[in-house]
Amino acid sequence: MSAATALGGDLATYNFAYLDEQTKRMIRRAILKAIAIPGYQVPFASREMPMPYGWGTGGVQVTASIIGPQDVLKVIDQGADDTTNAVSIRAFFQKVANVSVTTKTREASIIQTRHRIPEEKLQAGQVLVYQVPIPEPLRFLEPRETETRKMHALEEYGLMHVKLYEDIARHGHIATTYAYPVLVSGRYVMDPSPTPKFDNPKMDMSEALQLFGAGREKRIYAIPPHTKVVSLDFEDHPFEIQTFDEPCALCGAEGVYLDEVILDDRGGRMFVCSDTDHCESRRADGHRGRLSPDEAYAGHGKTEGEAVR
């Protein structure tokens, strides 16, 4: 007879939020250190998680270590609450921590994200947990970990600009559009994970705490609230975010990050908010775009658009 059965007959008993308490303490210590040294990559003993690397094992461990029974969790994948990765991780925490979940940015106390920052301004008390594939911004130019650590220690960041130089030389402008390197609190150069550079300004002086977890690479780093975050650039090629020619086809929002959605095989396409919650909230408030279902119902191509969402 197994211990689990003896304890209550439920075979699927996990510790709260899946990780054991020792592991959570270890990760919390890493998080505290990361908050104390903004932008610095703190090594931690990343655990095997019941999902493959690349699916957010780092973010999940960070979330599991900070989540409590009172928390309200939101999970997004490229801005969407309803894609596989987001749905699975949300279900995971419902199962192992029995926490409330939401898709509403405003209602969440913890938002775990893959590659976006919500359009709605985050508030004090909220925590944004990023899933990070490769935490080292210098990695693609300097493969040796010993060397990159030394470069961080000695603030030797000339190499980072080499990458931007290459962009301009090749494309005439800085063509890096995601994982755009930033300088945190005037000290550490940091990879903001593969978020579009559109989101970089949102990291600067944010009221929310931002935590970054890289499971495979075993690194945690953080940006505490109200921290200066500057995107690297050249004097004659200043940092710029992406702009879009048209508003969201569904809610008409401007100045937000848009995804391109292919509608048919005849070249039909539309641009819609990448942040699904933002888009839905606006539509609920009565905002309408060029192809909003209400008006566009008679049109064609709508079914495919729905399917992609």
């Binding site: 190499l159 050249f234 004097e235 004659d236």
Partner: peptide, 8 residues
Amino acid sequence: MAVGERHY
């Protein structure tokens, strides 16, 4: 760039 030149 390593010694701080920031003008492309």
